[in-house]
Structures are given as structure tokens and as C-alpha cells.
């Protein structure tokens, strides 16, 4: 294959968002939702056999809707989830123009796919089989590793990726991360949402709120520590749109992730060889949508004080760090390596 025909791509397969970066300069992000028309009528109305991303969410009443990597795992034995992953990959490849005669054609694609660390740990084989035959060559890596690689943060660094389904930790020690270098918590964006619904309903028993509503509010007002503004939102109370102050609820819900994250961070730090601990403490990188919670870096830094202090930095543009890292891996891998990775 002439190398000019080859398209290299990096894909970040997330529980809530998936992103792709391609060597032709195209980058896209979609919501990780895949839906099939739930019945004949829905098929007629939607006139499509499968809907992806934002479109799938908008038509969710008509769809059998799947979020294939919910909780950071590809559920084994669920054909629908496997098919959803495949559709998601095909869709992303189509977006960056991996097409021939108008049809998605990925026979010339070399892809590095980053998945939640836990998914890779639990069953690499299954994951690989699930993606079989979609691209020419495939390399699957853990998401935090792709992030670290893309940032050149390869040594004495800790990545904390707070996503929707999971929070992934990865300490980079200049080697391909092993089991002991990584941790996964199922405490992340989704669990904040669930708490927030509960807390709001406790405070305002008459109010009706859904997970979709609270996610929007959270993304607008999220913070930990001292509030800098009030979080006033409009929700139906006994059917009448009413303004509610949910500042305390937002704070409480966001702070539920603090103790487990701090504990895991400190535990991983304590396992770093003593001479390098200080370097790692000063190179903690926060990524993922959950990292956008206001004041979170500072709260984590406060908790590092008990072990000598440290520095937590948030990624400026978290959307594509994973897929860009995957693309960097794809481009750096020599042809001879790619030939061993046919999918």
C-alpha cells in the first residue's frame, strides 16, 4: 500500500463522548450514543437503520439506545453493545472522510483506539475481536496512556482523567503502564448526576428533574469548595416552571468525588519510588469533562499538602487530547509494526 493512501487516525472511545483525530487534519467529537429504531413505525419515521450521537439522543423515544462503554467496560455477551461500538467506529471514520464511492471504507486506515483503562484490563481479547474487520490495522491502548503520549508526559507524571463513567488514574514511569500504575474508579460525571438528582429532590420534593436536566446544570455551575456564584435553575415544580437555587446541591454532589479521588491519588503516589515522588506530585495532569469542575485543581493541591505539596494542572482543551495522542502513536509507529497489527 502506498503510504500516501494510508489514513492514520486516533480515536478516543469514551463512555459519554468519543473523538477522532485523523492525519488528514480532520477532527470530530460525537456523543457516545448509538440507537436503532425501536419499532417499525420508528424506522419509517426516522428513515434510518441506525442513529449516532446527538441525533440519537434527540430521537431517543424512538430508539433502542445504547451507550456501549457504560461504566468504562464493554459488557461481555451483549451483542448490541458490540454492534454499537462498531457503528460508533464506522461513524467516526466516515466523519473524517474514510470513504470510497460515498460508502465508509476503512481498508486503508490504521487506527489507534484509546479505551477506558478498565475495559482494556478486563478483556483485551474481547475488545479486539469486537472491533475486528473495521480498519486495516488496529492498536488498542488505554485512554490515559494515549493522553500521556500525546502530551509527552511520559515520565514522573500522573494523569487523572475524570470522564462520565469512570475516573482513570495512570502514573507514567517511562514504561508502558502496568496494572500497578493504573486505577479506575466508577465515581465520575455520571455518579455526580445521580447524586444531584437525589439531593435536589430531597430539597424540593415537589420538583421534577431528570438526569438530562441535571447534567446540563452541573456542566454550567459545577464547583467544589467556596461558591463564587449562585446556581439558579428553572425546573417544573408541580408542572409550573419555577426558579430553584441549587448551589448547595451542586457543591455537595461535586464534592462526592473528592474523597475517593484524593485517596487513590495519594495511594498511587505512595507507590512511586521515593526519589521520584516529588516530581510526580508536581506533575499531576487533570483531564476529562469532570476536570472542568471549578476549583477542583486547587482542592486536590490542598490535599497534597499533607504529603509535601504539589501541582495539579488542567488541560486547556480536553476534548481531543486522547484522540490526538492516539494519532501521534499511529503516526510514530513504523510500518513494520503496523504490519503486525492487522485487524
Amino acid at each position: 500500500m502506498a503510504s500516501s493512501e494510508i489514513l492514520h487516525v486516533g480515536i478516543d472511545l469514551g463512555t459519554s463522548r468519543s473523538a477522532i483525530s485523523a492525519s488528514n487534519g480532520e477532527r470530530f467529537v460525537v456523543d457516545s450514543f448509538v440507537g436503532w429504531p425501536a419499532d417499525m413505525v420508528a424506522k419509517k419515521i426516522l428513515k434510518r437503520t441506525v442513529l449516532i450521537g446527538h441525533e440519537a439522543v434527540a430521537n431517543r423515544t424512538m430508539l433502542d439506545l445504547h451507550r456501549p462503554l457504560e461504566r468504562g467496560l464493554l459488557k461481555e455477551g451483549s451483542d448490541k453493545d458490540v454492534e454499537a461500538v462498531r457503528e460508533l467506529l464506522r461513524h467516526l471514520l466516515g466523519l473524517v472522510g474514510a470513504k470510497k464511492n460515498g460508502k465508509v471504507d476503512s481498508s486503508n486506515v490504521r487506527a489507534v483506539v484509546g479505551v477506558p483503562a478498565a475495559a482494556l484490563r478486563t478483556n483485551k481479547q474481547y475488545l479486539r475481536n469486537s472491533m475486528k474487520g473495521i480498519v486495516d490495522s488496529l492498536m488498542i491502548v488505554s485512554e490515559p496512556f494515549a493522553v500521556a503520549y500525546g502530551l509527552n508526559a511520559l515520565l514522573h507524571t500522573m494523569i487523572i482523567d475524570i470522564g462520565a463513567g469512570t475516573t482513570d488514574f495512570c502514573v507514567m514511569k517511562g514504561r508502558y503502564p502496568t496494572e500497578e500504575d493504573q486505577r479506575t474508579l466508577t465515581i465520575a460525571g455520571d455518579s455526580i448526576d445521580t447524586h444531584l438528582v437525589k439531593l435536589i429532590e430531597e430539597h424540593y420534593p415537589q420538583a421534577n428533574v431528570t438526569l438530562f436536566m441535571v447534567r446540563e446544570w452541573k456542566e454550567k455551575f459545577s464547583f467544589v469548595g467556596t461558591p463564587t456564584q449562585r446556581a439558579n435553575v428553572v425546573a417544573p415544580v408541580k408542572g409550573v416552571p419555577t426558579e430553584l437555587d441549587i448551589t448547595n446541591e451542586i457543591k455537595a454532589a461535586c464534592e462526592t468525588i473528592l474523597p475517593p479521588i484524593v485517596e487513590t491519588m495519594l495511594d498511587l503516589l505512595s507507590r512511586v519510588e521515593p526519589e521520584f515522588q516529588e516530581r510526580v506530585r508536581n506533575n499531576i495532569i487533570l483531564s476529562g469533562g469532570g476536570g472542568l469542575i471549578r476549583n477542583l485543581p486547587k482542592m486536590l493541591e490542598d490535599s497534597l499538602r499533607q504529603v509535601g505539596g504539589g501541582k495539579v494542572t488542567y488541560m486547556e482543551d480536553p476534548v481531543f487530547v486522547g484522540s490526538d495522542g492516539g494519532l501521534a502513536l499511529a503516526l510514530d509507529a513504523p510500518d513494520s509494526d503496523w504490519e503486525r497489527l492487522s485487524a
Binding site: I140, Y149, D337
Partner: peptide
């Protein structure tokens, strides 16, 4: 470092 990491990532996939 990158070459080394990349090599390990590839090996890991080849093992799979």
C-alpha cells in the same frame, strides 16, 4: 522514551 513506550504498546497488542 517514546520509542520504547510505543514498542511496548505494539507488543502488548501483538500478544493479544
Amino acid at each position: 522514551v517514546k520509542r520504547q513506550l510505543l514498542h511496548e504498546a505494539v507488543s502488548d497488542n501483538v500478544d493479544t
